[in-house]
Every structure is written in C-alpha cells, then in structure tokens.
Simulated assay, not measured.
Amino acid sequence: MSTDVAIRPGRAHAPQNRSRRRPRPKRDRGRVLRLYVPLGLYLVFTLIPFYWMVVFAVRPSGSTTPVPWPITFEHFETVWNDIGYAVFFRNSVIVGVWSLLATTVLAVMGGYALSRFRFRGRSLFMVVLLCTQFIPGAMLLIPLFTIFKTLGLINNLGSLIVADTVFNLPLSVILMSGFISAVPFTVEEAAMVDGCTRLRAFLAVVLPQLRPGLIAVGSFAFIHTWNNFLFALMFVSRQDSFTIPVGLSYTIGEYSADFGALAAGGVVAAVPVVCVFAVVQRYLVTGISAGAVKG
C-alpha cells in the first residue's frame, strides 16, 4: 500500500514571512517629554484662570471652596437683570457684527486691488499698512475723539464701529491680498473671455474660493471688536450704549468688587468667542497661512 502523499507544487516554497507583523516604530521618549510636557504645563497655566472664573460665577457668595458646591446661578441673574448686562450684550453684538461686515467687505476690495493690479507705490503702501500695526490705539484717541465729536458720533455706537473697522483693516487687507493671490488669475480671465465682466468673474469664480480667508478675517475682526475696551470707554459715556467690557468694569467699585457678578459676566462674554472659534477653527490656519505666504 503506497503511503506517498501528493504535495501541491509551490506549497513547500511559500514565503514564511507573510504572517509576520511589521515591528512597531519605537517611541522617542525624549521627544514626547520635550513636546507634551511643555504643552501640558502651558494648557494648565492657561485653563486655571478660566476655571476660577467659572468657580466664582457658580458658587454662592461668601464661599471659599475651590470646588463649587452647591452650584448657584444667582450671579448670572444679578448681572443680567440688575446690572443691565442684556443691554451691554446687545450693544456688543451690534458693534461686532457691523464691524465684521464692514471690515470683510473693505478688506476684499482692498486685497483685490493689491493682488490684481500693479501700480506705482504698491510696495510702499504694503509697508505702510504693516507699520500701522505698531501704532498703539491710545495715541490716536484725542484725534479720533475730536473727529467723532465734530461728526456727532460721541455716545453713539457708530463711533465704535468706525474706529474698530479702521484698526482692523490693515492686517485684514494684507491677509486678503495674499489669499486672492493664491487664486490663479487665468481662471478669472477664462470667465471674462466667456463674457463675464470683471465684477461678475470675481463674484462667480474668485469669491467662492475665498471662504477660508473671509472666515479668518471676519473672525479676527469680530473678536477684536468684541474685546475692545479702550474705544468703548472713551467714545461712549451713556450706560445704555456701553459694551460688555465697559459694563463689566462698573461692577468694580472704589473699595469693593462683586467678584461673583464679574465672573458671571466674564463667562457670558466668553461664550460667543468660544463658539466662534469652535465653528471656524479649521478655516483659521488655512486662511492665515494663505494670506501670509502669498503676495
């Protein structure tokens, strides 16, 4: 009786290392320590003030515990109803939204001119725009106050909108100019060859590709206007025209301060900014990098 076993050809020579797993790359512990430890310390250092702001906002008056318990919302009621925070919040929204719109529209117009047209003094004009970022706003308070007083804009939210828009424009124009330069002009030319005017070509072809830049410019303009304290303090003196930063400053008296109300107002003021960053953060890096490396 034959005991021979038939062997399929090629089975004996099958590679033996197919089932072997690739070795995992070794972690560089030194790199982990150099990267994550400083980032962790910076994160803790950054979040501690926000933690204490929330603690003061939700713990009862007179309590000194680091953990807020029981939680109370009396400070929010005090800020919103007694101090008039609803009016401050409304004024900040009005100024922030109008400044955002004005800054974005003017930045697109100025950025397009700097990106698409070559004219004498263009480089010098870009340098001047950059140099304006080194001028502190406090130096221009007296000239601005005189101008707004002549125009009848003192104690008017229009003065804050104009001032914030003017100070947001230089950097916004530079960023938008770089972002428009990243869009090939040949695409715009093709639309004009098909019969579009320059404006129509811009609106139909270029503007849809500027979404990250528009979001970046608009976000920074809104956040800067939302947090601006100096202009609101100098150009507005009526309580019904106060914005959030000025309104919160009046919770601090000469000899005492309502830290619970101040913290509650700070929490409410931080919510819109956090929401804006949460929604648009993926566009910010793209917009800033495109505006910074092109031009």
Results as ranks from 00 to 15, higher is better:
M1T: 11
D4M: 10
D4R: 04
A6T: 15
I7P: 10
P9R: 15
G10A: 08
R11M: 10
A12V: 12
Q16F: 09
K26W: 14
R27Q: 14
R29N: 11
G30K: 09
G30P: 06
R31K: 14
L33H: 07
Y36L: 14
Y36Q: 14
V37H: 07
G40F: 03
Y42I: 15
L47V: 08
L47S: 03
L47F: 09
F50A: 02
W52M: 13
W52T: 10
M53G: 03
M53W: 04
M53F: 04
V54I: 13
V55G: 00
P60A: 05
S61D: 01
G62N: 05
S63F: 08
F73E: 03
H75I: 05
F76Q: 02
E77M: 09
T78A: 11
T78V: 01
V79W: 00
I83Y: 02
G84E: 05
Y85Q: 00
A86K: 10
A86C: 02
F88R: 06
F89I: 06
F89P: 03
R90S: 07
I94Y: 05
V95F: 07
G96H: 02
W98F: 15
S99R: 04
T103M: 07
T103Q: 09
T103I: 11
V105T: 10
L106N: 00
L106W: 08
A107R: 04
G110S: 02
A113R: 00
F117S: 12
M126A: 01
V128D: 13
V128F: 15
L129H: 03
L130I: 04
C131R: 00
T132N: 12
G137D: 14
A138F: 13
L140Y: 12
L144E: 14
F145C: 02
I147W: 12
F148Q: 07
I154L: 13
I154W: 04
N155Y: 07
G158E: 12
S159N: 09
T165Y: 02
T165M: 14
F167V: 14
N168K: 01
L169K: 07
I174D: 03
I174W: 00
M176C: 09
S177N: 07
S177I: 03
I180Y: 05
A182Q: 12
A190L: 12
A191Y: 07
V193K: 05
V193W: 01
D194Y: 00
G195W: 12
R200I: 12
R200N: 13
L210N: 06
P212L: 10
G213C: 06
L214N: 04
V217C: 02
S219M: 08
A221G: 06
N227F: 11
N227T: 12
N227A: 05
N227C: 07
A232E: 06
L233M: 09
M234F: 14
M234Y: 14
R238N: 11
Q239V: 14
D240T: 10
S241N: 15
F242E: 03
S249G: 10
G253V: 00
E254N: 13
S256D: 10
A257E: 06
A257L: 10
L262H: 03
A264W: 04
V268I: 15
Q281F: 11
Y283V: 04
Y283I: 05
Y283N: 13
L284W: 04
T286M: 12
G287I: 00
G291T: 06
K294W: 03
G295P: 01
